[in-house]
Amino acid sequence: MSKKHSKRYTALIKGHDKTKELALPEAIKLLKTKSNTKFPESMEAIFFLNIDKAKTDQNLRTVVDLPNGNGRKVKVAVICGNDKLSEAKSSGAEITGSEDLINEINSGKVNFDVLISTPDMMAKVGKLGKVLGPKGLMPNPKLGTVAKDIKSTVEAIKKGRIEIKCDKDGNLGLSIGKVKFSDKELSENFKSVYEVVSKEKPAGIKGNFINSIYLSTTMGPSIKLQLSSI
């Protein structure tokens, strides 16, 4: 049975050619004209990648710094030793603590989006694996969330550092900002993601790493990007 779309969506896709590839600037402009919801929509990028999810060395998980952020407010927590608490509290993090915060989290209180830990606390943070692991919130050196420099790490996350990772099908979807962002801001954010993803191509992959990329708004149609134009 085919999926039934709303009248709003049906009107948006009228005359829309899903097979036509557009250059990045054209795609952004066109999608903006098709955004008419009552809430601020996001502009989303979907990367279809040539990877084998069964091979762990091909799983993509890293971070990218969006130069203009993605319009989302992020609540940051920091676990550090008592000697670093003053720095943590002045860093801009909403939640800070040492063993007291570890105990809170272990009891099930997880009210943050990103958790940073200093290296010296990781032996104790390790016991939170069962709580944080399923939520994808465990501090990870590769993702920059195990760090000595608390202030610069919090600032980077607040400014627009986000984690990107493949889904169960080996593809990558993420927000590159709000539709209300300027074309330039959305383009800069997209290119930052594209550059990072391109550099993450696993050594074992032959041929193209990125098969195709689509842009869409939260509630709108998708547009296939012309890769040669990026």
Rank of each mutant, 00 (worst) to 15 (best):
M1C: 12
M1F: 14
S2E: 12
H16M: 13
K18H: 10
K18M: 07
K18P: 14
T19V: 11
L31A: 04
K32W: 01
K34D: 02
K38F: 00
A45P: 07
A54I: 04
K55S: 08
L60I: 15
L60E: 01
R61T: 10
V63E: 11
D65E: 14
D65C: 09
P67Q: 06
V78S: 12
V78Q: 11
I79H: 05
G81M: 12
D83P: 03
D83F: 08
D83Y: 06
K84R: 15
G92C: 05
T96K: 12
G97K: 03
I102P: 07
K109Y: 08
V110Y: 09
D113Y: 08
V114A: 07
S117W: 10
T118R: 08
M122F: 10
G126T: 12
K127D: 01
N140K: 04
L143Q: 07
G144K: 04
A147D: 08
S152G: 06
S152E: 12
V154L: 09
V154C: 09
E155P: 00
A156H: 01
I162W: 01
I162T: 06
I162L: 07
E163L: 07
I164V: 14
C166S: 14
D167H: 03
L174R: 03
K180A: 14
F181R: 05
S182C: 03
S182V: 05
K184T: 09
E185Y: 00
E188N: 12
E188C: 05
N189D: 03
F190T: 09
V193E: 02
V193R: 02
Y194V: 08
P202C: 14
G207K: 09
N211F: 06
S212C: 05
Y214R: 02
L215E: 03
G220K: 11
S222R: 15
L227R: 04
S228F: 03
